[in-house]
């Protein structure tokens, strides 16, 4: 993933420092040119179904939301900030327990006021997505 060095470094510091992002143990692993990538480790306290050890869907949502916002910030239009307006998530399958969870997002269109994003959540099997999402975000100028 292309890295727009200085901005990417600032974005990483900013994202990784957000209280909820750091509470999840998530970190920005890619940033730049309308795209962002975030990953986190599987953790027992984030499990939704103790019978299977599958991570809760809410964690997947949080990861996609964060990654979506990051992709807006990675747009070359350089917004000052962003907030989620709406987010729709489709869950394709359960994330495999004890595997890393990864989200990739792309801000594929931006206007003066609104950014449009699609995102995907993956575990080790990148051929079969865990979830996909589409969202709209505010653009602070």
């Amino acid at each position: 993933m292309p890295q727009d060095d200085e901005r990417a470094k600032i974005a990483k510091q900013f994202m990784d420092g957000l209280p909820h992002v750091s509470a999840l143990g998530a970190r920005l692993t890619g940033f730049g040119d309308t795209r962002a990538e975030i990953e986190m480790e599987w953790r027992a306290d984030l499990v939704g179904d103790p019978r299977t050890g599958v991570i809760h869907g809410g964690v997947v949502s949080a990861l996609m939301d964060t990654c979506g916002g990051a992709s807006v910030m990675a747009h070359p239009d350089l917004p000052n900030g962003t907030a989620t307006i709406s987010l729709r998530i489709d869950y394709m399958r359960s994330a495999t327990p004890r595997q890393k969870l990864r989200a990739r997002a792309e801000c594929f269109h931006i206007t003066r006021t609104v950014a449009f994003v699609r995102a995907i959540a993956l575990d080790d099997d990148e051929e079969r997505p865990v979830a996909t999402a589409t969202g709209s975000f505010t653009v602070e100028r």
């Binding site: 957000l18 949502s61 939301d65």
Partner: peptide, 14 residues
């Protein structure tokens, strides 16, 4: 400060 959007989504889903 504001609640994380992902927290809001997770809260509603739960």
């Amino acid at each position: 400060p504001a609640l994380h959007g992902g927290v809001t989504a997770a809260f509603l889903e739960i």
